[in-house]
Design a protein around this nucleic acid. Structure first.
Lengths: 192, 192, 192, 192
DNA sequence: CATGAATGAGCTTTCATTCAT
DNA sequence: GATGAATGAAAGCTCATTCAT
């Protein structure tokens, strides 16, 4: 007797998530060209063919990973934070604290930051049109008015801030005994 | 009229340099695995076969690029600077000024920083054993004694400093209208 | 109330027949190499795994189909007809009438002819050693003696006759609004 | 020093023709699904990779073969013949003589007929809209008026005629010691 | 020396077969 | 018994490398 429709659906969804998550870490560490599907499948712990039951091609898998990074809750959460009615100083503290905490414990968070940033770097239309950048730019402008953020081009500062976050995401992924970024360092980038 | 021995040697040397330089930019932008020799040759403007008259293999070409990045005068210069009899503050200013100036005008400099850093990230033995890191660590320690550099783990600060430099090297390579790093930003990372 | 042994046996036999029949049509249309078990199962309306409960492998399924085509009553019937004590003219008329009638109404007949002929074409030992050919050769020889069949190599004529039958079997399978062969056409091939 | 542009072009064209011709024979004998690119390349006497320098995929190679069969001069020649100012009887004789002669000596001719017919069989819009069929239909109508061709549906007769040609093309390809079709047999199909 | 066509090892992808449910 | 997800062997395809010119 066959499994129920729902059971199947659940199993498929679980497997898809598993592949997506493990692959994103693997791709982030090894790059697209250096990742062999055979190795990736072995790393995930499934057969090569199974990959192709869930994704039409290596290319499509990679695209899906990108999409997931873009739509991830964690990133969306930061956007929300930036819109709350708080002094800029507090917003920056909250965001920085959140980022530092996440980066400390969660490889997947680092992967998302990494992929997202690399996507932005490769985009033709330029880094600075990105939402995360724009949100941070707003906060910085607010902070400059409130006198809690250093003077200077707000976009330049936003760029510096997220760039530094990217830097430590990379380190989390690549360096075994890396020195975790401290909240105080992120704050120093922006605050007077 | 046969060309002289020397002319031949010169031509070979020139071509080799051309390949090395253009390849390093291409590798830095695309990564090793994603770079196809055919595309690379087209980008350089030579035949595929020609690559193999100057380098035994893709691997060897990449090794050569790595060596060039490691032994480059520009990088060596920074090392020398760090050993001169100056207050830490001055050293940091000189280094930062040098880095900012170079990054502004020279793609090749950005390429070297990029490749060097990516190599460090991939090394098993850890980022922090690197010479550039050690030199900066020393300066920071000196600065902390002299009271001109913020307190904190010197290696952490060195890491932050070079990481930020890497960040802006990346941007120079990938982002068309990127916002150049300012000397003052680099100084802010370290100075009180 | 458990089903009886016999009911089970019947069900298995029915399913086996269904698979055999539908598969033979599918194979005849698509060829062996171009037929994917997945597609075939979907066409039959069963699960992929189910195929393997009735046949050990794709190869075995095909062998079984071949055997069925070779041993089919319809084909055997023609052989019997050829041995009856009748004038050649009558035999040819009876065979042709039988073939034309069957081809008109029965896809399975067309399938058998098609598979049988394609197997013959692929056989190394030559088309002309086939029983159907030999039987027809005999009738033609008889007819030539009786003055009712055109002169010429009897094997050549037998070949022409069965080839034409094959031709119209193919058309029945492939062409939607095909023009059915007429008995008179088959007779014209042989008779004076 | 590189070869001249022209030499290259010629060589590429020659290789392409060679692949096309040998492949068409191989495909015709083995079918699409049963043909492995590796085997095909070995049969042609080139490396596997070379196939892909001239055709993007197995599919594209197959499509190209079909196109060649459709546009072949030999087939076009028959079309021309059908339009010349001659009695139908003569046209049929000329066409039949041409076909029989070609089939006797040229595997490539048999391949073209085979591929062309299989294409027609697979076409949705029906066999009978084909140009070759229409041309023959015209000749038959003419012949029926002239009293040299048997009565009956002209399209049915055209179908019978080309079907028989296909039959013997198949035999040329598959049967080692096949009995060649005789001109007289083709004429018997149509003439009174 | 410089070239790009040719090659085949190794990668990506498919599909006959197995297996847990 | 029946199913379809999972598998890996084998097929399709790519690309670093070689080689004839």
């Amino acid at each position: 007797m066959p499994k129920t429709e729902e059971q199947y659906k659940k199993m498929r969804e679980d497997m898809r998530s598993k592949i997506l998550e493990k692959s994103s870490l693997y791709f982030a560490k090894n790059g697209f060209g250096d990742t062999k599907i055979g190795d990736l499948a072995k790393y995930i712990g499934i057969g090569q063919g199974t990959m192709y039951m869930y994704f039409k091609s290596k290319e499509e898998l990679f695209d899906e990973i990108r999409k997931c990074a873009e739509n991830s809750e964690e990133i969306q959460g930061l956007m929300v934070l930036s819109k709350m009615p708080l002094p800029a100083e507090k917003k920056i503290e909250k965001i920085s604290s959140e980022v530092v905490k996440r980066l400390a414990v969660d490889d997947r968070y680092a992967v998302k930051i990494t992929i997202l940033t690399q996507l932005m770097l490769e985009q033709e239309k330029g880094l600075y049109s990105n939402n995360l950048y724009k949100a941070m730019e707003k906060i910085i402008k607010q902070g400059q008015k409130e006198g809690t953020v250093v003077e200077g081009d707000p976009l330049y500062l936003a760029d510096l801030y997220w760039g530094t976050v990217y830097l430590y995401a990379l380190k989390k992924l690549f360096v075994a005994d890396y020195k975790q970024v401290k909240e105080e360092t992120l704050l120093r980038l922006l605050e007077v």
